[in-house]
């Protein structure tokens, strides 16, 4: 019976593999940028003013996608909060204290990691990185924090406010783009500044910072929710 099942599944997967293979063979190595990408390469700098072309695409050209992405994280955090509402409660068994090694290490590392994270999302338009990457790093800081101060309760309030305010500001900036410039999320409502400096590329640094904070807050929120799940035994 088990063999029957496995072989049936194998056949199904086999067919899928064959389908994908048909797709694979159509691939030819690329030699040129296509028109759209070439446009980004040539005009991206002067239009948007960011050195990191990927950033300019993510934040400005395809800003609506980013808005959607941010919404998805927001959705996820909200849903997890909704689903896990009944899981919270007071722990019946005491939590084991974190080890000294962990606590000391955390004290040293947390500021450093935070700095890296902030650097990454602030400089998103100049070097590889951006809001999401920076935000993820900030969230990892949060994990470290959680692990090291395991007996203290952390409230959601700050995280929720950060999320909400950054989200609102994002939209506000977008709307300002319609009113003051050429379209939603146009970054030219602030001046493009000098290329290569921190305060260039219009609204991009601001947006990416907001995104970084938001992502960090949301991922931290999710982790916090998971952490507050009451297990059957402590661990």
């Amino acid at each position: 019976m088990k063999i029957l099942r496995s072989s049936a599944l194998l056949i199904v997967v086999g067919f899928m593999a064959w389908m994908m293979f048909n797709l694979y063979v159509t691939y030819d190595s690329r030699t040129e940028l296509n028109d759209v990408a070439a446009y980004y390469a040539e005009e991206g700098l002067s239009e948007v003013g960011a050195a990191n072309l990927v950033t300019s695409i993510v934040v400005t050209y395809r800003g609506l996608d980013t808005l959607g992405e941010v919404t998805i994280l927001f959705l996820t955090a909200a849903i997890i909060g909704l689903l896990l509402k009944t899981e919270k409660g007071t722990r019946t068994t005491p939590v084991r204290e974190s080890s000294e090694f962990l606590m000391t290490g955390a004290r040293i590392l947390i500021p450093v990691i935070t700095m890296i994270g902030v650097y990454i999302f602030i400089n998103g338009h100049l070097s590889p990185g951006g809001g999401f990457q920076g935000g993820a790093i900030l969230a990892s800081t949060f994990i470290l924090l959680l692990m090291s101060i395991s007996n203290k309760k952390i409230g959601h309030r700050l995280l929720d406010y950060t999320e909400a305010i950054s989200g609102l500001s994002f939209i506000l900036i977008g709307v300002l783009g319609i009113i003051l410039a050429a379209g939603f999320l146009d970054n030219k409502i602030f001046s493009l500044g000098t290329f290569g400096t921190l305060l260039s590329a219009g609204t991009i640094p601001i947006i990416y910072s907001l995104v970084g904070l938001k992502v960090g807050a949301e991922l931290s929120n999710i982790i916090l929710e998971f952490n507050q799940i009451q297990g059957d035994e402590d661990h």
């Binding site: 990927v54 695409i57 993510v58 996608d65 998805i72 996820t76 999401f132």
Partner: peptide, 29 residues
Amino acid sequence: AANEITDPLPQALVLTAIVIGVGITALLL
């Protein structure tokens, strides 16, 4: 630049896709 860089668009798409994947995975868990 047009002759020296790889295509930036898929990289932008992947950023978004990764986040979406994270969201779904978290929900699944």
